[in-house]
Amino acid sequence: METNETLQPTIAQVVENVEKVIIGKRDVVILSIVALLAKGHVLLEDVPGVGKTMLVRALAKSVNAQFKRIQFTPDLLPSDVIGVSVYNQKEMQFEYKPGPIMGNIVLADEINRTSPKTQSALLEAMEEGNVTVDGVTRPLPRPFFVMATQNPIEYEGTYPLPEAQLDRFMFKLKMGYPSLAEEIEMLNRSEKVPPIEEIQPVITMDELLHLQKQVADVYVDENVKRYIVEMVQQSRENASIYLGVSPRGSVALMKAAQAYAFVHGRGFVIPDDVQFLAPYVLSHRIIVKSEAKFDGLTAEEMVAQIMKRTPVPIQR
């Protein structure tokens, strides 16, 4: 956070609650909440053991949501995710057995380990908000929030998510290792009972849904919208970028900015919100040209460059 803006009180409670488990990762926590509020999904990319699962579980518990976890393996089938119709001999009819996706907060662990077929089944569900089994469309529960993780280290036998799939995640985040003090604190807390067992819900699901509605009411001024679009368009025109950000990206950026402004108790979006979120929203939607890659340019750097070049609106 660039400015020490205070958080919206309800959100502050949630953050505080999650931080009992996740130490020193406020940005990630807040971004996760932002995604949850903006009805987006998050892709966490990091090495194992930095607390990805813990974050999701803590978040789910704080908002009193149903938590489901899918461990993606190469042999996982789409039906293992979205559920399957089983013939009930007693009833003499097919009966839908919901898959693990039928939860409020779903952790899709190591998503890149499964086959593209299964991946796309998940992502379709994420995008459309419902699943179709045997021709019957069933809505997913509300709220529905997927946090997928992938391990950037072991690429052997993985199916990297194609660009079209990455686009469906609002953010791509990295946890990173905790600092020394933070890690010691982590040890302290885990000494007796794992802290995850101890945390209590702070808001109800209904409250969460209400918050989501409120987020949609956050005002985005014309000039800020223009600012977002200008940034996105620059990513399409940049000579070092092979594939720029899609319009879905600009929508995601705006929605995230609304949620972010709401999280900070503001009824309107300011360019600072956009700037803070842009790296998380845009980086994974950009494919940097190989030449530029050889020059050491990464997508994050490209986004930073674009931000520097796009004039911030300072007047109505």
Partner: peptide, 12 residues
């Protein structure tokens, strides 16, 4: 003020 700098950043 760089053109990419927001007012808050500049104010800081």
């Amino acid at each position: 003020r760089n053109k990419g700098q927001t007012l808050r950043q500049y104010a800081a």
